[in-house]
Design a protein around this nucleic acid. Structure first.
Length: 856
RNA sequence: GGGCGCGUAGCUCAGUUGGUUAGAGCGCUGCCCUUACAAGGCAGAUGUCGGGGGUUCGAGUCCCUCCGCGCCCACCA
């Protein structure tokens, strides 16, 4: 290609007024059309860089936290792509479960009534009505699908505008068929290997939605309450013992009394029994260290289940044959007890009228509370003898208390006007669980976790978060031997691929979050055992990177490791990058409930995506970061500067075809640039994108302020063709390199400039090589040259004169080395600083004395 | 209550194995329309490195302690 054609082409393509306006949709379209980020399925595992992307919860709102952490991952993805890797970068949407149901109810103003028939013509009103419209279950599911599709589109739009280099042909949703199929397949494998067990365990129960809820769905809320004094009767007839409780309605579910082992008041009674008031059930008195002698009367009733301590106590059942008592105490209502060999029996569902404190009982807990207080006793058990023939009601001697209760997070549509007191703990057969939660493997893991994690230790970024505590405890935290039984009999029912989703949306068993699809994102994202694409999974697994929040190490990270360990005998990824929080100006964690979130789309529109990405990637990995629009302004300025500086560098003129970088200061600049490339590369290899950005940015501003000024005249040809060619070639080389270094951070602006003069996409170009830039330049030449220029500018500024004003005489003192370096850049210095006469003298260090011309 | 982390300029943050006079950007002050950029440029001022103690020739950096803040876990009769 001849230089004239080249120059003409260039002139056409460099705009007179470069702008960032409208840049995002334009390049997003082009990248999609060109398949810029499409995964190369022919790549071998060694050529692949695979990312296990955390699926955002689409039923939640978009917020800057998404922008923040996903940008970090994208910067790494873009770097790896330019390093020549085939980047596997899928995206998933988490749209399972209760949040989706809730959002559908709020959004459309409907509620699901399974008794209604399907209405094929149903359309929700434009505005959600005050009174939720009851609709059939199929109608409700249709709305769920409609809304999640909308939500997913909103997320994709955001992420596209943000410039995430995701391969959008690899999108999955945790609710879609593939995810369910893989999830079930993985579970079958667990079954086949005997890694899954059915286990008796309590589940948190949402009274409103009549479904089990995950712990993560709960929040603490202060509840006003009062102690109610209940009189239990010693079975040996020696009188009463009083219990203070805030939850008298749970009396029917009382299975034991518990006091602290050292409590002298009750120590002698351990092993004996009492009869409950009202129900006359005989329960044991036990000792447990969690009982607090200071609270109430120092002895508490254990119910199945009022709170999580009850669970502990119930599980901890000591040597006393509590299971036996359990059986009697809760004939129909019991959770099952243990069989003769100590294994839990199958749960027998309680009959409705017996669910005094269980899920779904009439009137809810409030009614139960009324009854137990004596206003409306449910019935009079035979032989019940209580003081005054009734349970001791509210005891006014105890002041009202405020105590926190765990309860489901409340959405706006949660039956307005009705205070639903609490999440119940209902004994249920826990959904089949991995041994992770109990049994031999759990014990093995509890001893092995460090070995497991250490053997092929995932590198955790940033390393300081790696504190052995985190990972070790993540692995061993929930070690608790528990009875279990294999589920082989169930296996055949699941065989043959995905089963139907729960026929009834309600009462769908929910796991404790970390056992659901989310622990299988590597398998789902990688099409594990999904036909049609040969060995895709083998090409991406184990993944190279898993980014995630540090708050869910113990849940998500650990469960992903466990499942990969069982399934593949390896870690699911080799690196984990932990991202920090976004903090509002008061240094609080930004969250929806606090109402301090900022809409990310508006930010992207106001500052531009590159600017927001700049703010995001300025934050060190894993560091909590303040939301700072100031940084976005800086980012925008940087992006604009990049356009303008590029326009200038490309506009000085075309280097002749065989141009060489010959001038000393040009070679010196390239030498410094080579150092920068090495530093940025090292930083990226250590996942420290922020350092790479910071160093690149610092170099760039110095490059603009000093190098461009220094060589400007020469590049325009003031010193002849040879020196001009050297400057132009150096400028082109530097610009190309800087665009590449900035590309992971400012994908739009760099691509824009790239398109002015280079073929293809900067994002599929190769990462710069330091060696290709080195020409034996001496950085000292650069330092001295820019130092003298800067001194001349300072003199002019201090004299309040224009920078154009001539320097009549510049006297430079310096070491022999410095003076020798100065001679190599003398012509550029004299020209750029407009120096009439420059003299040199030997000295200890570089000192510049400047005399300005008198004329104004 | 236990664990992890943070505290450096008015603000947001760097500061690597302990090593000259602790840095950057924003903001602030002043100057300059300079043939890429005035939504710009050039230059300047700005510190009890949270407090105290210790180790060391030398501490922002290592140790102890206290104060303040954040998160996770636990507790919540």
């Amino acid at each position: 290609m001849s230089s004239t054609i080249d120059a003409a082409a260039r002139a056409r393509r460099v705009p007179d007024k470069p702008t960032l306006d409208g840049i995002e949709p334009r390049w997003d379209r082009t990248w999609t059309e060109q398949g810029t980020y499409r995964f190369d399925r022919s790549a071998t595992r060694a050529q692949v860089y695979a990312i296990d992307t955390p699926p955002p919860t689409v039923s939640g709102s978009l917020h800057v936290g998404h922008v923040f952490s996903y940008t970090h991952t994208d910067a790494i993805a873009r770097y790896q792509r330019m390093r020549g890797k085939a980047v596997y970068y899928p995206m998933g949407w988490d749209d399972n479960g209760l949040p989706t149901e809730r959002r559908v109810q709020n959004y459309f103003g409907v509620r699901c009534d399974p008794s209604l028939p399907y209405d094929p013509g149903f359309e929700p009103p434009a505005q959600p009505p005050k009174q939720p419209i009851p609709i059939s279950r199929p109608n409700f599911i249709e709305l769920c699908e409609r809304l999640t599709a909308t939500d997913e589109q909103a997320f994709e739009d955001l992420f596209r505008r943000l410039g995430l280099s995701v391969d959008w042909s690899l999108v999955y949703a945790t609710i879609d068929e593939r995810s369910r199929r893989i999830s079930q397949r993985a579970f079958l494998e667990n079954l086949a290997r005997g890694e899954a067990y059915q286990q008796l365990a309590p589940t948190l129960w949402d009274v409103d939605f009549r479904t089990a809820v995950a712990q993560a769905e709960l929040e603490d809320r202060e509840q006003p309450g009062a102690y109610h004094k209940l009189a239990f009767h010693w079975a040996d007839g020696s009188g009463d013992v009083h219990i203070d409780t805030t939850r008298p309605e749970l009396l029917a579910a009382c299975v034991a009394l518990v006091a602290h082992p050292d409590d002298a008041r009750y120590r002698d009674r351990f092993g004996s029994t009492v009869r409950t008031p009202l129900f006359g059930v005989e329960v044991p008195v036990l000792g447990h260290h969690l009982a607090d002698p200071e609270k109430g009367t120092g002895i508490a009733m254990v119910c199945t289940f009022g709170d999580l301590t009850d669970v502990t106590w119930w599980r901890a059942r000591p040597a006393v044959a509590l299971d036996h008592r359990l059986g009697r105490a809760h004939h129909r209502h019991r959770p099952g007890g243990d069989d003769r060999r100590g294994r839990p029996r199958r749960l027998r569902p309680a009959r409705r009228q017996d669910r005094q404190a269980g899920p779904g009982h009439r009137g809810g807990p409030a009614a139960g509370q009324r009854r137990a207080r004596g206003r409306a006793p449910p019935h009079h058990p035979p032989g019940q003898v209580l003081r005054e023939g009734r349970p001791a009601a509210r005891d006014r001697r105890h002041p009202p208390v405020v105590h926190p209760q765990r309860r489901p997070r409340r959405g706006p549509a949660r039956r307005p006007g009705r205070a639903r007191p609490t999440a119940h703990l209902a004994p249920r057969v826990h959904a089949p669980s991995l041994r992770e939660l109990g049994g031999r493997a759990q014990r093995r893991l509890a001893h092995q976790p460090t070995a497991l994690l250490r053997r092929a230790h995932p590198a955790v970024v940033p390393p300081r978060r790696r504190g052995p505590a985190d990972l070790r405890r993540a692995a061993g935290a929930r070690a608790r031997p528990a009875a279990h039984r294999p589920l082989h009999r169930r296996a055949h029912r699941l065989r043959g691929g995905p089963t139907q989703p729960a026929r009834r949306l309600r009462r769908r068993p929910r796991h404790h979050g970390h056992l659901g699809h989310l622990s299988l994102t590597p398998q789902i994202g990688g099409y594990w055992h999904e036909g049609g694409d040969g060995h895709l999974f083998d090409r991406v697994f184990p993944y190279d990177l898993r980014p995630q929040g540090h708050d869910i190490i113990r849940t998500w990270l650990f469960s992903t490791v466990v499942r990969a360990h069982f399934e593949h005998g390896s870690l699911p990824w080799t690196n984990t990058a932990l991202s920090g929080w976004i903090l509002d100006p008061d240094r609080k964690k930004m969250s929806k409930s606090k109402g301090n979130v900022v809409t990310p789309i508006a930010l992207l529109e106001q500052y531009g995506s590159d600017a927001v990405r700049y703010w995001s990637t300025s934050a060190r990995p894993g560091v909590d970061t303040a939301f700072d629009e100031g940084q976005m302004k800086i980012g925008r300025r940087l992006a604009i500067k990049l356009l303008n500086a590029s326009k200038f560098a490309l506009g000085t003129g075309e280097a002749s075809p065989r141009a060489e970088v010959t001038e000393a200061v040009d070679r010196a600049m390239l030498e410094r640039l080579a150092d920068l490339v090495e530093e940025a590369t090292t930083a990226f290899e250590g996942y420290d994108y922020a350092r790479a950005l910071e160093r690149t940015e610092a170099f760039f501003w110095d490059f603009c302020d000093n190098y461009l000024e220094l060589v400007k005249g020469r590049a325009y040809g003031s010193q002849g063709d040879g020196p001009a060619d050297s400057a132009r070639a150096a400028l082109a080389l530097a610009l190309e390199t800087l665009l590449k270094l900035f590309a992971p951070f400012l994908p739009f602006a760099t691509e824009e400039v790239w398109s002015w003069w280079q073929p293809g996409s900067v994002h599929t170009s190769t990462w710069p090589q330091a060696a290709a830039l080195r020409r034996g330049g001496d950085p000292e030449v650069y330092r001295v040259g820019t130092g003298v220029l800067s001194a001349a500018r300072r003199a002019k500024t201090e004299a309040r004169r224009s920078l154009k004003v001539p320097v009549e005489l510049a006297q430079v003192a310096g070491t022999a080395t410095e003076l020798a370096a100065l001679e190599l850049v003398r012509a550029d210095v004299v020209e750029s600083a407009n120096i009439a006469a420059l003299t040199t003298a030997t000295g200890d260090e570089l000192v510049v004395a400047v005399r300005l011309a008198d004329d104004a």
